[in-house]
Nucleic acid binder design. Structure first.
Lengths: 336, 336
DNA sequence: TTTATTTGCGAAACCGTTTTCGCCAATATA
DNA sequence: TATATTGGCGAAAACGGTTTCGCAAATAAA
């Protein structure tokens, strides 16, 4: 019933606790014979060491924190898989904390992390995050941090991003080449670097190809799905509505499709649509969806790899290690 | 730089550590005046208590473990949101552990949990899980456990499920009413209770409506996406292929649609298709997908609520608390 | 043979909290 | 006035491991 601990084991084997502990860590001080006896008895008694006790003395938790806005999103869930794959290899656990796009939540989570709950942090900031004091506090406490996707540009540390500017450019250019001359942009949060970079790419493409830029065709979406749907519908029912749209996040796909259906607009006839998305169902939508697809798994993997490098040797400077992994443009029927 | 601890705080305030600790817990032993001084200084010095030290002494971790096969799945990610919403309210953290449908992983995770890392567990078993010794071991260690969705029927504890049998029945009956007379069933793993219950509902519906059951139309899918795609394609290119299909998990949608596209079969013309799914994009697929949609968030919420009840008073018996929350059938164009 | 080194292990301090217990002064009760 | 109670706090023992240090016996080197 009750969990057995290292003392019980010591009593059972007539050894000291220190010997047991050393045997588990394969110390050279302990004879092979004793090690085997210890391991065997541990298995027999089903001994599992208490990770918190180890953390306490060892001053590391063997946990990394992953702070993300949301888990019900293909990009983030794939990124988690990437992070988890390397954490597992290193014998670490992953503590996933969701901000639900709330700055308040984000602050609280990072604050808690300063108590020693995790040894390092991988994060993608919330849409509400416009200042970075809470992040600097965390780092001042000696915790290494790696950003992925949604970064704080002003903070000096590793940032794993994709080529947001180029992708925004490419998506927009594609719409132009497909004949669009009124191109809308659905962003999220003006604070968010990725949204801004993609927007800059969008603007540059319009500029380079001498297509008019209309402020009214830029919509800043929020975390409120109903509100976004209303904004999108409002955009599309104007009589000079865009005939092409670039959307920056996966969750905007459904509202755009539904608004078109409701308003009797055909995709791609009346509106060509391309979205930043990792949705597996992109290829079977009606019509299939042209996407900019981010290397989600790889980004997670890379972020974790860098974080562990910095955990393994403190001399390793994260600030020199940012990486940009390109996204892929996948043409499908929504931009025919 | 270095994290400050309760001793530093005590030194700063010329108080003992016990006084500090009691002040934080709002003990009646401490004067209001002292409490305020402590709180204020803690804020000023940015003191955050070490959760592992508390865990160690308090013998509870304030963590619950969530063991699921996969996070990149709408059902599970929504369920996580449900679980997290109640954990947060209780001041608990959620440790998400992924089995990736591997029994070996599942065993290792549960084993680790016996070391005291979590105070209770919410789980959905892997497709490979056909025996339950590892789960019994965990419970024998005194850890409360609640199943959701994919349960082990033989284990006596709370199980939060949906009406799998009825849903399987309803889905099948719907296909029959839409004119299908050769109805296929795509299951996952013969060990899995949910797959079996849905299958039984399917069989009962066939029986009640005097529709032939053909073993060859039942496909057992695996965790290998490529393999599943091959199985599905093989099923659909037979000359007596089914004209209706019930699929038990979300991830089978894309392969079915793609196989149809490849083989020139029209949905719903040549094949009517209904899937157990929480995909947000179901309504904008080509064609839109009829679904059995599970109450994912609510199931997570309910599982967590029960787990906390049992954590709060040990007298609470989980085995009497199983709940069945009905799924909803949503008719769309894939079964027209 | 004497001294140096190695091998194998145990005692005890330590990690950062919480909690029990005891203490003294101040107040309440008899 | 003598005694009981209360209020406010500190010392120290836990919690379950890890790690440093010391020590005795066995082996190696001189």
């Amino acid at each position: 019933m009750k969990n057995i601990n290292i003392k019980d084991l010591a009593r059972e084997l007539n050894l000291s606790v220190s010997t047991i502990s050393k045997a588990f860590h394969d110390s050279h001080e302990i004879s092979e014979d004793t090690k085997n006896r210890v391991l065997e008895t541990a298995r027999r008694l089903n001994y599992v060491p208490n990770p918190y006790a180890s953390s306490l003395r060892g001053r590391r938790s063997k946990n990394i924190g992953v702070v993300i806005p949301e888990v019900a999103d293909s990009f983030f869930s794939l990124a988690i898989n990437g992070i988890e794959s390397v954490a597992k290899e290193k014998g670490y656990h992953v503590l996933i904390c969701l901000t639900h796009e709330s700055f308040e939540n984000e602050k609280n989570i990072l604050k808690e992390f300063q108590g020693g709950r995790v040894d390092g942090v991988i994060m993608s900031v919330s849409t509400e995050t416009s200042e970075s004091g809470h992040i600097l506090d965390l780092m001042a406490n000696g915790l290494p941090l790696v950003f992925f996707d949604r970064v704080c540009e002003e903070i000096e540390t590793a940032k794993i991003t994709t080529d947001d500017f180029e992708s925004g450019y490419k998506a927009t250019e594609h719409l132009i080449q497909q004949g669009c001359d009124k191109i809308g942009f659905l962003g999220i949060s003006k604070c968010l670097s990725i949204s801004n970079r993609r927007f800059e790419g969008y603007q540059k493409a319009l500029n380079d190809h001498v297509v008019a830029y209309d402020t009214k065709h830029t919509v800043s979406c929020t975390n409120d799905a109903a509100h976004n749907a209303a904004l999108i519908k409002e955009l599309l029912q104007r009589k000079d509505h865009p005939n092409g749209i670039v959307a920056t996040v996966e969750k905007l796909t459904t509202p755009v499709y539904l608004a078109c259906a409701e308003l009797g607009l055909s995709i791609p006839g009346d509106l060509k649509f391309i979205c930043f998305s990792n949705l597996e169902t992109a290829s079977i939508l009606n019509p299939s969806l042209s996407t900019i697809t981010q290397p989600a798994f790889e980004m997670g993997q890379m972020a974790a790899t860098l974080l562990f490098k910095s955990l393994e040797k403190t001399s390793f400077s994260l600030s020199m290690e940012s990486q940009v992994i390109p996204s892929s443009f996948i043409k499908r029927n929504s931009t025919d």
